Simulated scan of single mutants.
Amino acid sequence: MLELFHLQMRTAQMMVEANTVIGLRMLGMAGVLPSDAGETSRMVSEKQKAFARAGAAASAAMIAGKTPLQAYGLALTPIGKTTRANAMRLTKRKIA
């Protein structure tokens, strides 16, 4: 039961970070905040990498006989790392 609660908290954290990233990127695209030139292509390519890693981790976990909760936790890790890194990077921007 504690493992499920831990995964729910990790999921909630990832969702908050993703919401932050989406908001900051939209403000950058609107010209309200400064934005790097490659930010739009970056947001597409990083999703592909994160989801590919998540799928590979979940598949490997299930093949290895891990529980669905363990597989979910392993799949969540690359997505959470990506959203956390983006949230940290985008919130450090200086407003011009």
Results as ranks from 00 to 15, higher is better:
residue 63 I to M: 13
residue 61 A to L: 03
residue 50 A to L: 05
residue 23 G to E: 05
residue 93 R to K: 14
residue 50 A to K: 00
residue 25 R to K: 08
residue 57 A to M: 05
residue 67 T to C: 05
residue 55 G to F: 00
residue 23 G to M: 03
residue 49 K to F: 06
residue 70 Q to C: 06
residue 63 I to T: 13
residue 60 A to P: 02
residue 51 F to E: 05
residue 39 E to L: 07
residue 54 A to L: 06
residue 44 V to M: 13
residue 54 A to R: 02
residue 21 V to M: 03
residue 95 I to Y: 09
residue 9 M to A: 15
residue 93 R to A: 04
residue 45 S to W: 03
residue 95 I to A: 14
residue 17 E to Q: 15
residue 76 L to Y: 03
residue 69 L to A: 15
residue 1 M to Y: 11
residue 63 I to G: 02
residue 25 R to L: 10
residue 5 F to E: 13
residue 35 S to E: 13
residue 55 G to V: 00
residue 72 Y to P: 03
residue 84 R to P: 03
residue 4 L to T: 10
residue 33 L to S: 01
residue 94 K to G: 08
residue 68 P to D: 03
residue 96 A to L: 07
residue 81 K to W: 07
residue 81 K to V: 08
residue 37 A to C: 00
residue 4 L to S: 11
residue 21 V to G: 01
residue 91 T to R: 10
residue 15 M to K: 12
residue 4 L to A: 14
residue 82 T to L: 10
residue 62 M to P: 03
residue 62 M to N: 06
residue 27 L to I: 03
residue 45 S to Y: 01
residue 11 T to Y: 08
residue 1 M to E: 12
residue 6 H to V: 12
residue 6 H to Y: 11
residue 27 L to G: 01
residue 11 T to C: 08
residue 18 A to G: 10
residue 75 A to R: 01
residue 89 R to E: 10
residue 5 F to D: 12
residue 92 K to Q: 15
residue 20 T to G: 01
residue 49 K to I: 13
residue 42 R to Y: 13
residue 95 I to R: 14
residue 28 G to T: 02
residue 49 K to T: 15
residue 70 Q to V: 12
residue 79 I to D: 02
residue 42 R to W: 12
residue 67 T to A: 11
residue 12 A to P: 00
residue 26 M to F: 10
residue 23 G to H: 05
residue 89 R to S: 07
residue 64 A to I: 01
residue 40 T to Y: 06
residue 31 G to K: 04
residue 39 E to Y: 01
residue 59 S to P: 00
residue 53 R to F: 08
residue 62 M to G: 04
residue 4 L to E: 13
residue 30 A to S: 09
residue 23 G to A: 06
residue 55 G to N: 13
residue 67 T to L: 07
residue 66 K to N: 09
residue 71 A to E: 07
residue 79 I to M: 10
residue 6 H to I: 13
residue 89 R to I: 02
residue 37 A to G: 00
residue 36 D to C: 03
residue 4 L to Y: 11
residue 68 P to K: 07
residue 11 T to I: 04
residue 40 T to E: 11
residue 6 H to Q: 13
residue 3 E to I: 11
residue 64 A to H: 02
residue 61 A to G: 06
residue 25 R to M: 11
residue 59 S to R: 14
residue 53 R to E: 15
residue 44 V to C: 02
residue 75 A to F: 01
residue 57 A to T: 02
residue 32 V to E: 07
residue 48 Q to Y: 11
residue 45 S to L: 10
residue 28 G to V: 03
residue 14 M to K: 08
residue 88 M to H: 09
residue 37 A to K: 11
residue 65 G to I: 00
residue 48 Q to M: 14
residue 20 T to E: 05
residue 55 G to D: 08
residue 10 R to E: 15
residue 7 L to H: 02
residue 43 M to P: 01
residue 16 V to H: 07
residue 76 L to M: 14
residue 80 G to F: 02
residue 16 V to G: 03
residue 68 P to F: 07
residue 84 R to S: 13
residue 52 A to Q: 09
residue 30 A to H: 04
residue 56 A to M: 12
residue 60 A to S: 15
residue 94 K to T: 15
residue 69 L to C: 04
residue 13 Q to S: 10
residue 78 P to W: 10
residue 18 A to Q: 08
